[in-house]
Amino acid sequence: MMAMTGKVESLKQGWLDQPNGRSQGDLLITEPFKCRIAPHPFIQFIHQVQLAASGAELSVASLLSEETTGFGLLLR
C-alpha cells in the first residue's frame, strides 16, 4: 500500500508543514494542567474558530492530550 501512496503521503506531509497563518499572541501550551483549569489563549482560539466555522452561539472545547503543544506565533 505504501508503494502506491508513498508519493502522495510525502506531498501531503510537506503541505501540512507549511505555515498557514500568524497569531497575534503566543498560543503555546507549556503546562497542560493549567490550560485545563484556567482560561488559556489556545483554547480561546479553538472556541473562536469553532464559532466562526459553524455559526453557533456556543463552543465547547477542552484539552484532551498531555502532548498538545498549541501554536507559537506561526500557525502550522
Rank of each mutant, 00 (worst) to 15 (best):
L58Y: 08
M1Q: 11
T68L: 13
E31Y: 11
M1H: 08
L28R: 15
L73H: 13
W15D: 07
L27N: 00
I46W: 01
S10M: 06
K12P: 02
Q44G: 03
P39R: 02
M2A: 06
A53D: 10
M2G: 15
P32K: 07
L28T: 11
G25S: 08
L63M: 02
L28A: 09
L64A: 15
L58G: 06
A38Q: 09
Q48I: 13
T69V: 15
L63P: 03
G6C: 07
T68E: 15
W15H: 04
H47K: 00
T69D: 14
G70C: 11
Q18D: 11
G70Q: 14
L74E: 15
L73F: 14
R76M: 11
S65E: 08
M1C: 07
G70L: 14
A38F: 12
S10G: 04
S54M: 01
F71W: 12
V49G: 05
E66C: 04
A38T: 14
A52P: 00
I43K: 02
E57Q: 15
G6H: 01
P19I: 02
L51E: 13
M1S: 09
I43A: 00
A61W: 00
Q13F: 04
L28Q: 05
E67D: 13
P41T: 06
L73M: 14
T68R: 06
L16Y: 09
L58N: 13
R76D: 09
L73G: 10
K7G: 09
E31A: 08
R76Y: 10
L73N: 11
N20P: 00
I43Y: 01
F42C: 03
G21D: 01
L73R: 14
P19Q: 01
G72R: 04
K34C: 04
S62Y: 14
K7V: 12
Q13I: 14
A61F: 03
S23Y: 00
L74F: 12
E57G: 07
F45L: 00
S23G: 01
Q50D: 09
P32A: 06
F45H: 02
N20Y: 06
P41D: 02
Q24V: 10
R36V: 07
H40C: 03
V60Q: 11
P19G: 01
Q48T: 13
E31D: 08
P41Q: 02
K7R: 12
L11G: 03
E57I: 11
Q44I: 10
L16T: 08
C35M: 11
F71T: 06
S23M: 04
G72M: 07
L16K: 12
S59L: 10
